[in-house]
Design a protein around this nucleic acid. Structure first.
Lengths: 192, 192, 192, 192
DNA sequence: GATGAATGAGGCTTCATTCAT
DNA sequence: AATGAATGAAGCCTCATTCAT
């Protein structure tokens, strides 16, 4: 009967939100600015989210989930530890090169005490890491001293930090094949 | 005497600023809130800083400088590469345990695209890292594939991330000796 | 059948409007809230009313008319002054006990400078009061010093205020027989 | 050291608030409109009140208190029941003639389910009424059937309603001596 | 120097209303 | 006829900043 929710609008909203939170911080990314950038009405997003914080947080959790779900797939696909790791990193860099804003968005909010990964999502992510850890330890590719949190730090956080270091201080917009190989070589050091 | 009072005020202001920026983000830490927490008049800090952003940024650069100056001292004191590394990490964890707010503050603003290390400070910091890198490479302890940025990432960023992971997700308030050793063992991996 | 559904909707709308205007005031009773409460689409009532104000006002006038029309009937039915008065009061209390929201709605909007009884309705109402006044004066039951406005005040306003005093401050939901008799005894004092 | 709160501003704020709440209702009296009318900054009143509702409610309670405190004085001054009553009514009408907005404000919010007299103030007011009731009953001037609530209704509510009836429907701006006498003659009826 | 009262731009959010379906 | 997605003006309120004291 009535119009159907325009998915394009919601998508534009998400893109603009990520972009402006990165550019101006959560506080600096005003609702009006976001709405304008997304070409939607200023009060539009309240139909989809309870408020600005809720919107940003929801998008953040979505992105987390997207990334880690893919990680989960790689683990299932390929039981080799180094292979899985490389796939994960390459996938992540792929996102960085196709949707840099997403990786910047993760970079910014990952270090914010007001944004915490949802318990449920975090548990699921940690289970993925646990799985890959088991594979690594079993195949002798991974130092068994390294716990799940360590792996999370090395694989996920380090990669984000590596990529954003290029963005923030090297004014580099694309992550090259050389960068990937360099990163992989660093990570491998840590893992064994 | 007047200057002593004044210095206390400025110190309280810095502490409150770091605390509230961590707790509520830059945007959420209002000048009034900070002033109240510091037991200082709301218009007080304009005598010392041009505005809120300038104050936060100035404090951030100070903290950077404080940390890296100490790093510089360690390098001069002890020419052994692994020794310097350990001293740096232990010093950093020392700050975390005596002034956790400082390390949280670094954690938060380090990943903010609106706060960039001043060029001058950054250069100086990189020179310190360069020095230690040279020592490492010369002594055969360090893979010469690892550049200055890599070392920055590994020594500085990784340590911050490691500590804040404990704060944010493990509800841990103190970094224990075991934690330090674990961190050191991880970091040592990239040494030859 | 379609018309029946429609009438139900309109009725639900009126009920919800009265309820929410009482509970949150005119401004606080949002169109969306009313529509939701009435299980009706938010744009529905624009087919029946020009806007929110017009809807509320129309309902108010309807309720006025409903009450006073009944008053008119009582006057015609029974020419005794005290009998008419009692019938009116009992009728009004009857509404209060079966549809308290209506009497609360009148209570709230009766004292609002933005809602004025329509001239036409007011004239008609005053004519009823005039009629009963004549009967009262003629039968010696009513002090002839009391004008139409006085009678309106004593019979209508006082009764509304009496009932709502019970609702608002005595947390009483039903008006008892004792209350009615008490009210009647007070009103009678005024009239003679 | 700093400026001292300008009492004129606060007073203008109160006047404008009452005026605009009467004219447009609580919801229609926007913060911006009130501030503009009071010639203060739009965010000014948040330094004195938690929000718009709190401001309006605080002013309402003040006005209640002002009126009833005066009532209390009259009761103490003059122990004659009819004398006290007359003084109260004349005082109230005096307010109506010098500050009509106050009586209109009471009229409007007295019938709002969102504004309730503070328990403390209400108790005090009822104690005054109780005192005068006792005097009335003791002196044989008052039917002991009439309770405190009845007296509140008759003396306070009826007077407010009487006065506002003149304002709202008779376009009368001043309450005349004749009006007062008429009102008094009505009120005297419930005396024995 | 220090205070905090006051400002008013701008933030977040709500809401009456419209209109494509 | 009815729906509810979408709008954007306007509401409430916060806040960085100024400045009289």
């Amino acid at each position: 009967m009535a119009r159907i929710t325009d998915q394009n609008k919601v998508d534009r909203l998400k893109q603009s939100t990520m972009k402006l939170v990165v550019a101006h911080g959560f506080g600096g990314a005003s609702a009006a600015l976001i709405a304008k950038d997304a070409r939607v009405a200023s009060g539009y997003f309240y139909r989809h989210y309870k408020g600005k914080y809720e919107m940003v947080n929801a998008i953040l959790q979505e992105v987390y989930q997207e990334v880690f779900n893919k990680f989960g797939e790689f683990i299932k696909e390929d039981s080799s530890f180094p292979g899985s790791i490389e796939k994960m990193i390459r996938y992540f860099v792929g996102i960085a090169n196709s949707e840099p804003i997403k990786v910047k968005f993760l970079y910014v909010l990952t270090n914010d005490y007001n944004f915490v990964i949802d318990d449920e999502i975090r548990s699921k992510n940690l289970r993925f890491i646990e799985t890959i850890r088991n594979i690594g330890v079993a195949s002798g590719c991974l130092d068994e001293e390294l716990g799940v949190d360590d792996l999370y730090l090395i694989l996920f956080i380090m990669t984000i930090q590596f990529i954003n270091q290029k963005y923030k201080y090297a004014d580099q917009e694309q992550i090259t094949e050389a960068d990937i190989n360099h990163l992989l070589s660093i990570l491998q050091k840590f893992l064994k």
